[in-house]
């Protein structure tokens, strides 16, 4: 997915995990994913470079669709579709 698409994407659930380090963001994502329906979009905010690599792996394992990552000032926005 192109970056342009990500900036305008409709986010159904936002998880702010900027205050935690590994494995905090992954845990936060796991907890939050249960609160959305299949097909809905979730974004994970993380200041952790590792999370940017971890979330796509988690998506592959769980069968979610990793949509891409936006770099913001000091953190990442990681998008996925359940």
């Amino acid at each position: 997915m192109m970056t342009e698409d990500l900036t305008n994407i409709k986010v159904d659930k936002s998880v702010d995990a900027r205050g935690t380090s590994c494995p905090g963001p992954l845990l936060a994502a796991k907890k939050a994913i249960g609160e959305i329906e299949n097909g809905q979009v979730m974004e994970v905010l993380s200041a952790d470079e590792g999370t940017r690599r971890d979330i796509p792996k988690w998506c592959t394992k769980k069968g979610y669709e990793y949509l891409g990552t936006l770099e913001e000032a000091g953190y990442y926005k990681i998008f996925l579709r359940k």
Partner: peptide
């Protein structure tokens, strides 16, 4: 513990 919790988070 980090590996364990990470693994559990990945089900």
């Amino acid at each position: 513990l980090i590996i364990s919790v990470g693994a559990a988070a990945m089900d």
